[in-house]
Structures are given as C-alpha cells and as structure tokens.
Design a protein around this nucleic acid. Structure first.
Lengths: 305, 305
DNA sequence: ATGACTCCATAGATTTTTTTTATGGATAGT
DNA sequence: ACTATCCATAAAAAAAATCTATGGAGTCAT
C-alpha cells in the first residue's frame, strides 16, 4: 500500500470544496501539488474518482464511498494523535497506586492531590493494603506504583529504598516535652502503644528498649498509628511512630496540635520502598509520580533525620 | 498532523517483533530507516514509546495503547484500499437498474447474467416499471441506469436514444409466412393483439394501418407482448411487436419455435432510451453496463432494422 | 465574438524528505 | 576477551513532494 496521509487529506478537502484550487488554498499547497496528489490516489487505487468535465471535477459515486471511509480513518487518526499528545503532556493517562496504611492516611492523598492539580483528565486509582499484598500486586503488574515496607529482594520488582527514622509522640504538656531527644530509658515502664506483634516497627522498638535495658510497657496494640496518636492525645500512652504517620498527623491538625514528635534513641528504623514492576518500563505518568514521591520521602528523611 | 502511514506501519512492526532490525527486514528497509521513523514518531507525538535499555527497545505502556489505535487505523485503511481496488476492477459495487416491461422479460436479465459472469460480488437491483416511473426514478437519482421509452426532453437526465423497428409476429404455418415483408394491407381486418389504448406502440400501429387504408381489427388488448405472443401461438391473432420482445421470445424458445417475426411495413417505430442521471457522473460499473446495453440494442437494430 | 477569468493538467526545476551506507557504543553470550 | 547483535547517528544518495510556469478548455460578461 503506497498511499500517504497527505493524499487522503487532500482527497477529503477536494471532496469537501469540490475544487482542487480551493482545496490547495486550504491545505496551504499549490494547485498542481493537490492535482498530482489526487492523480496519484486514483492511480494507486485504480479508480477514477472524478470525471473531468468542462474543466471541472465532478464526483463519481466511487468517490463518495471512499470519502466516508477516508473521513472515518482520518478522524480516528487525529483523535488518537491528540490523545497521545495529551499523554505526552501528562494531561491524560491512568495511574494505579498501591500504598501501605501509614502513608495512605494523609501523605499519599495529599501528594496525589498536588500531582493532579494541573491534570484534570488523569485517572488515578489508589488502594490501601498491607505491604505483603502490595508487593504481590506490583509483581503481577496490576499496579504502576507501590509504597510499602521494603520487601525481600524480588527480581520482578524495581525497589527504591528509603530508611526512615521513627519518632516519639508525646503530648506537648508532657513532662518529657522539654527534652530535645527522647530515649528508651526515658520511656522505660511508661505505657506505650505499638503495632501488632511481628510488625517490623514493633520488633525494632523492642530491640531499642532491650539495647537500653529499658522496660517496654505495651499498653495498646494497634494496626496503624492513626488511633495510637489519638490515645497519646488522651494522655494514655506514648508511641514510637514512623515519620509518615507523624507528618500526616501534623499536617492534618493545621498548626494547632496537642502532640509533639521528638527524635527517639536508639534508632528505630522503618525501611519503606517505592515499588515498580521491573522489566516493564513505567509510563511517563508513573515516572513523574515516582519522582514526586521520592522527593517527598527525601524531604521527610531530611526533616526528621 | 505530520505523521506518515509508513511511520505507523513501522511502529506496528516494531511492536510486533520487538526489534527495529527485525521490523526493518520485514518492511524491506534498512535498520536506520526504521530507527529514524520511530524517532520521528516519538518526536511528533511528544511521547517516548520505548525505553532504550541495555541496547534494546522495551515497550512502554503508552506504546501499547497507541498500538491498538494504530492497528485499527491501518486495518481500516487496508480493507478500504482493497475494496477500492476491487471496485476499480469491477469486482465489487452496486448497480441499480430500472427497466421497461418489454426488455425486462428476457433481454435485460440475460444481459445482466452475462455482465455478472466474472463479477461475483456485484450487487444488482433490477426493477420493472412503466416508462413514466422509470423516468422519475432516474431523475431523482434513485437508479443508476434506466431503459424506457424515450421520455420528453429532461435536463436532469442523460438519454441515449435508439429507434427500433417493430416486427410482425405470426405462426410459422401461417399462410403469410412465405412473404418476406408483412404489410398493413396483408393484415387488414385480420385479428390483432395490441397494447393498451394510448401506448405509443398502439398509436404507431394505428397510424400504419391508417396510412395503408387498412382496417385494424383489434381482437386483444394486452399490457405487454409476452401474453400477446402466446395468443399468436394459439392461432388467435397476429401482433406488431417490438424487437426486444421478439428477440426475447426467440431466445427463450431455444431454436424450436412456433412463431416467425417478419419485417412490417409501413414503419412502426418504438423509440427507447438508456437513461442516466445527468450532472452526476456514472460509476464505472454503470458505465460498463451502459456500454453492454448499448451494444445489445445496436445489435437488435442491425438485425431487424 | 472576444477578452478576462477560472478551472485543471503537465513539465521541468527545486526543495524537502526518506533511505542508505558507514560507523560507533553498548550489551550478551561463549 | 572475542564475537555477534542491538540501536543511534551522521553524511551521502536517492526518491518524493512541491513549486513555478504554462497551456488548454470552459464560463461569463460585454
């Protein structure tokens, strides 16, 4: 097949205007250029589209039929091109994000909101799941981007690791609030809210207390830090929480806040990762979002050390 | 929009094979040619379709989406082109024929059959109507070709006129069958089957008898000559019929025939025309059919005329 | 009828685009 | 380390599209 899109466009314009000269003007070419495009078209298809009578072109039935097809084809092409250009400018697209609970409360929604500010036609789906499920979903390429606790090495996943330092949450009127840094010793035997048994954060906290030979008095066991912080607000306990939850809490309280977050020692870490399917390059959209997310996490690390 | 079909084809092939080099082989181009087509495509759309990693191209999600559209477009285009080429070779198309009774019995169907011998996919519709209706249908461009008694001059119609000479039908065992030419005098007062009052053929026949001062003894009045010839077969009458009906009758009897058709004098004419919509060039198919029909009518004139 | 216009097709010159040849860097397999 | 394969790039060559110029043919108004 040896047709060109320009020939089809020229044909359509000639059909519309009924004249080679007129079509040429509209297409921004000279009349002979259009004339020869039409001739080439007729030649290629082996069909005479116009009768040349009295110096004019008169459409033949064959041309009418061809026009309907050409018109559909050109329209389809041009909407496709438009869509692609919008994708290129991040104006259109789809982004599937899977996210661990700690970040899904405030951080990710806020980030998405900001990311979508100038992108009204992007379709985003956000799912909150445990890190293990997120890992699985990313591996099977059902999602574009995941944020989860760093999973064991998995060659089907591209992981970008961030080591976050957990903080101690306490009321601003707490006696300890004057200290710059809270230590395990400070909290020895004081009531604590922790995550469930076996969670990396819980384990790391236990380690920290053991290292300092302090007593971990676990008063509450919670699934994520959202409710834990409420308990701290009520003066019922302390908690060693990750900085994403902390920053989410602070942002959400809008300046007026009952809680303080202080550095905690010894180090209680939380290793989270941005996950992407390996062996499948990300869409431009995913790439941009990952950039934003990376930026955000680095800001968090910088801020809380 | 500045894409070319070749770019789309190249893109599709690269997606299919996963390789520029492979696609180049299949497309019959060199690898750099394909490489630059893809580059041009990406550039034009502002979207990176492939990630160049480890010396290979890896498809991005954007490319998958684009492929589905491109594939649909190219398929639509290629079937359209194929159809047009078939139209060009008269393998496909539509032909609407309207035809007067005299010709619709045998002549036109036979002609259509022959015309369609090598055209299995042509769609033909044949309607038999009175000449007045045919004229109207052709004027309103509902039909491509008409065959009717010559209508009054009509600028919306292109007419090709044929003057046919009517013949006298008689049994082969009739006493008159030895004569080379039958005259009105021969038939004076003998029973005749004629068309209905007011029909041009009837008028012309009356004229002929009047001119020869013979008596027209109308025994039967019929709508067309088909039944009239049956009556002649039964020895009930004679009739002055048009050569289309005559030739149709003869063809249909397959050599073994009870009737003879002799020249009749004085001249009783029937003026028929091939009608086509003016101001609208005919399809190639219509043109070809009109040629065949013209040929057939000229043969008739030559044979009887 | 004639002259002024407009239409489309053609030819040759020219510009633009595409394709090729040649080459180099990167990667994977042996 | 050697070889083969992949893709990108640059310059040269080839091909295609477009332009200018022109001519024939028809229309319209005078």
């Amino acid at each position: 097949m040896n047709l060109t899109i320009r020939q089809l466009q020229a044909f359509r314009e000639v059909m519309r205007t009924g004249s080679v000269s007129e079509a040429a003007k509209i297409l921004g070419r000279t009349q002979p250029a259009v004339s020869s495009m039409i001739a080439g078209l007729e030649n290629e298809l082996g069909v005479e589209m116009f009768k040349r009578q009295r110096g004019r072109l008169v459409k033949k039935p064959e041309a009418e039929y061809f026009l309907t097809e050409v018109d559909a084809i050109l329209n389809h092409l041009s909407t496709t091109v438009r869509t692609m250009k919008e994708i290129g400018k991040l104006k259109k697209g789809r982004l599937r994000i899977a996210c661990m609970p700690a970040a899904s409360q405030f951080m990710i929604p806020r980030l998405i909101a900001k990311f979508l500010e100038d992108k009204p036609n992007i379709n985003v789906s956000l799912m909150m799941r445990t890190s293990a499920v997120i890992e699985e979903w990313l591996t099977s390429q059902q999602f574009d981007v995941g944020l989860a606790e760093t999973p064991p090495l998995n060659h089907a996943l591209h992981t970008k690791i961030f080591n976050l330092k957990c903080l101690c949450a306490l009321r601003s009127d707490d006696p300890l609030s004057s200290k710059k840094v809270i230590t395990a010793k400070d909290l020895s035997n004081l009531p604590l809210a922790t995550l469930n048994e076996g969670h990396p954060n819980k384990l790391a906290t236990e380690d920290a207390f053991r290292k300092e030979k302090s007593i971990l008095n676990q008063r509450f066991e919670v699934r994520n830090f959202q409710p834990a912080l409420k308990l701290v607000e009520e003066k019922l306990c302390y908690c060693i929480c990750d900085p994403m939850s902390a920053s989410g809490y602070l942002d959400n309280q809008g300046g007026f806040t009952k809680l303080l977050f202080k550095p905690f020692e010894p180090y209680v870490g939380l290793s989270v990762s941005i996950l992407q399917p390996a062996h499948r390059p990300p869409s431009l959209l995913a790439e941009m979002f990952v950039d934003k997310l990376t930026e955000e996490l680095n800001k968090l690390i910088e801020q809380y050390g």
